[in-house]
C-alpha cells in the first residue's frame, strides 16, 4: 500500500515539497511567471522567437465580444477555446466539428452555442484562472493529430509533456486521453501517461491513475510499441522554450500536428510529478546531473538536446 520514504529517495523520486523549494523557487524567477501563466503571452512570445504554436484564431477580452464569437468561428469547423490563465487544463473546450449551431466536443458530446457563450463568459469572469482574476479567452486552430496518434487516443489529441531543466530536456511523457478523463490529457483525471525514452522517443512504460498498464483502456492498443515521430525536433522545440522564458524548471506541452509538425501548446512553471511514475524513474538524478554541469557553459539548444539524448538514454 505504501512505499518507504527511504526507498523513494533511493529511486530519486522528486517530491512536491522538494520540487517547490529546490527547483521551482530556486530556478523560476517570479517575474517570469506571467509569461507562462498567461497562454496568450506565451503564444505571442513564441511567435517572436519563431517557435511554432497552434494558429491563433481569435481573442475574446470583454464580455460584449462574446456576441461576436459566432462570426469569429464561422469558417472554422473545429477549434479550441482556452482561458489564457487557466491551470491544469481547466476550462479548455475543444470543438472538433459542428453541425449548424450544434457543436461537437472532442468527447463526441454535443454542445449548443448558448453553452459555449456561457463557457466564454465564465472564462472572462476568471472562473478557471489562477486566483480567480479576470481572464481572456483564446480561440485556436484545432490540432490535426498524426495518423498513428489518432488511433491511440480515445478522443482529443495526445500531447507530449517534456520537463526542461535549465534548457535541457530531462524527462518526457506522452499523454493519452481516455473515456475516464473526458478526452482531456490530465493524468489525475484518468488519462494514460506513457513514459518516453529521451534518446529515441520510444515508449518505456505506461500508467493510468498511477497503475502500470500495457494497453490503452479504451482503444486497447498496445502501448509498448509507441514511438513518437520527429522526436529530435520535438525536443529541440521544448529546449528552446528555455530561452523564451528564462525559467529554469518548466514543463513544455507539445503536440504533433499532421500538417505543421511539432507545436508548442503551453508552458507550465509548476509541472506535475506524475511524469516520474509514467517513466518509472525519478527525476532527481537527472536534475542533479544538469546541476553539476559547468554553469559558465551556455550551449545552444541543439547541443543541449544532443547532450540530453546521450545522457538520459534508457539503456
Amino acid at each position: 500500500m505504501w512505499i518507504s520514504p527511504f526507498r523513494l529517495r533511493r529511486q530519486g523520486i522528486l517530491g512536491m515539497n522538494r520540487r517547490n523549494v529546490a527547483y521551482i523557487s530556486r530556478y523560476n524567477s517570479r517575474s517570469s511567471f506571467p509569461l507562462v501563466d498567461n497562454k496568450l503571452n506565451t503564444k505571442l512570445l513564441a511567435e517572436k522567437f519563431n517557435l511554432s504554436t497552434p494558429r491563433l484564431r481569435g481573442i475574446i477580452r470583454y464580455q460584449y465580444e462574446i456576441t461576436n464569437f459566432m462570426y469569429q468561428v464561422e469558417k472554422l469547423s473545429g477549434f479550441a477555446i482556452k482561458p489564457a490563465k487557466g491551470a491544469g487544463g481547466k476550462g479548455i473546450l475543444v470543438i472538433k466539428s459542428r453541425n449548424g449551431d450544434v457543436f461537437i466536443k472532442s468527447s463526441d458530446k454535443p454542445i449548443g452555442c448558448h453553452d459555449i457563450k456561457r463557457h466564454l463568459s465564465n472564462i472572462l469572469a476568471g472562473l478557471y484562472s489562477l486566483g480567480g482574476s479576470q481572464d481572456i479567452a483564446i480561440i485556436e486552430d484545432l490540432i490535426q493529430p498524426v495518423e498513428m496518434f489518432e488511433k491511440l487516443s480515445y478522443a482529443g489529441v495526445p500531447d507530449i509533456r517534456i520537463i526542461v531543466f535549465k534548457g535541457y530536456p530531462v524527462m518526457a511523457m506522452l499523454r493519452l486521453s481516455t473515456q475516464a478523463s473526458d478526452g482531456k490529457a490530465n493524468l489525475h483525471k484518468g488519462a494514460v501517461g506513457v513514459g518516453l525514452d529521451i534518446a529515441t522517443g520510444r515508449c518505456l512504460h505506461a500508467v493510468q491513475y498511477t497503475n502500470r498498464i500495457t494497453h490503452h483502456p479504451d482503444t486497447n492498443i498496445v502501448l509498448d510499441t509507441i514511438s513518437v515521430p520527429d522526436w529530435q525536433n520535438l525536443l529541440l522545440l521544448a529546449a528552446r522554450s528555455f530561452e523564451l522564458t528564462g525559467l529554469g524548471y518548466i514543463g513544455a506541452d507539445l503536440v504533433i500536428d499532421k500538417n505543421s509538425g511539432p507545436l508548442l501548446l503551453e508552458l507550465n512553471a509548476r509541472p506535475g510529478l506524475t511524469i516520474q511514475v509514467a517513466n518509472g524513474i525519478g527525476l532527481l538524478p537527472r536534475l542533479k546531473k544538469i546541476e553539476q554541469l559547468d554553469p559558465d557553459l551556455t550551449p545552444c539548444a541543439t547541443d543541449r538536446v544532443d547532450f540530453a539524448m546521450k545522457a538520459f538514454a534508457a539503456i
Partner: peptide
C-alpha cells in the same frame, strides 16, 4: 516547515507503484 523538502505522507501512497522497480 516551509523549508521541508522531504516527501509528503500522501506521496508515499501516490508513488507506491515505484515499489515494483
Amino acid at each position: 516547515t516551509g523549508q521541508y523538502t522531504g516527501y509528503k505522507l500522501t506521496e508515499l501512497k501516490r508513488f507506491r507503484v515505484m515499489r515494483n522497480k
